[in-house]
Design a protein around this nucleic acid. Sequence first.
RNA 1: GGAGGGAUGCGAGAGCGGCCGAAUCGGACGGUCUCGAAAACCGUUGUGUCCUUUGGGCACCGUGGGUUCAAAUCCCACUCCCUCCGCCA
Length: 437
Amino acid sequence: MIDLHRVRADPEAVKAALARRGVPGAEVDRVVELDRRDRELKGARDQVRARVKELSREVGRARRAGEEGGAEQAMAESRALGDNEKELDAQIDALSVELRDALLGIPNTPSPEAPDGSSPEDNPVVRWWAPPDVRIGEDGTPDYPVHQQVPHWDVGTELGILDLERGAKLSGSMFPLYRGTGSALIRALTSLALDHHTPTFEEIRPPTLVRTDTMISTGHLPKFVDDAYHLERDDLWAIPTAEVPLTSLARDEILSEAELPVLLTAATPCYRREAGSAGRDTRGLLRVHEFDKVEILAYCTPAQAPDIHADLLARAEQLLQALELTYRVVDLCTGDLGQSSARTFDLEAYAPGVGAWLEVSSVSWFSDYQARRANVRYRPAAGGGTAFVHTLNGSALAWPRVWAALVETHRREDGTVSVPAALRPYLGGREVITART
RNA sequence: GGAGGGAUGCGAGAGCGGCCGAAUCGGACGGUCUCGAAAACCGUUGUGUCCUUUGGGCACCGUGGGUUCAAAUCCCACUCCCUCCGCCA
């Protein structure tokens, strides 16, 4: 949620910042106007309440003094004010809802460094990385030999480590079932990532079914209702990302500056209905309803945020490098930025089998936008009242697409898949994945 | 699933419907004393919001409603926590 004081103080600056992401200035004007009326009404209501309280105290005083007449008079006057107050309250309630909705509809202002643009095509690639033996061509496409240009659904089926048909039988399409070493691979990737992040980041195993409140405080509801799985009987939601429980961890709390930054990591399953993206890039593991992901997240001061953003990005990159995957870093332009984000870098791993760059991580800085909504504050050491923390998070990493890129990239001419050295300790020393393993 | 108890400030914990944004103790911070420390003593110590801001108003005692001139206090509903029984990975 955007800072109302900031909108009030300098609406033109907010409009200019939001114009970069295509938000019409009229929405800001509407908030300014609603806020003006809201304050006006509340001022009037507070004056009435002050008078009622004054009269009530007078009733008590008069009673104690035995002045029944005075008490009766004060009570009568106060009663008369009651209707007035109720009327004002009703107006304020309606207006507050309108104001809050208008405010929630306004996205975060982009960081000045975020590149301008209106669609994903405008996202600049800030860098490429490839293992030493991989060449990236003139057009930005990595050059892989033919035996690596086999899609992971074929590699997986040949080796018996991926069984999409059985997954679909159990739960429908886009619910993958891994088997044998394919299954162990997910577990190995999770262990590799958690070992990389801990103990710098505290490992959390949060609940993956959460209350409506929790989903609302991170902004996943009501906007993305259709994308979330809901268990009606218990009114619980399956988390679409560990960002939801981790961001809510400090909800309504006031942290001391000394304990910042708070660095957290969690490996959880994630559930997404993917309504609206049906049929698009859904082959194999490209888009699935249930997947495992390791998330890294931070609460910090505004001053700490830039370094932490860089660190989160570096951590995701280090994992891709350890897995010897070719990837590129994309700086999301203002038009492609998520609603809450001020700056986001996407990491895209190259999958030679499907011949595409797959988004495997998204590392975002939310400034105080999320913290305001979730009400996570800190007490600055310098004093002067509480302030909202900055939140940042990133996937490091989401496994299905990594799994896909991995088995395609490391496929050998004989159809088996070699295991990157970094992963071997987590697979019992195994160096190669062969059929029936 | 059944029965009972509870929710108040940083913590513990009091609070006949009015003088309660809240006693008391503890913690933390500042000061006095001291060579220094401890002890003792004194003081400060919630959040948010609005205004015509050396000041003033309003809201918040788990959440939401209600009663009343007036609610932490009374009534209703809900949530969470604890204890016991049942069931159970």
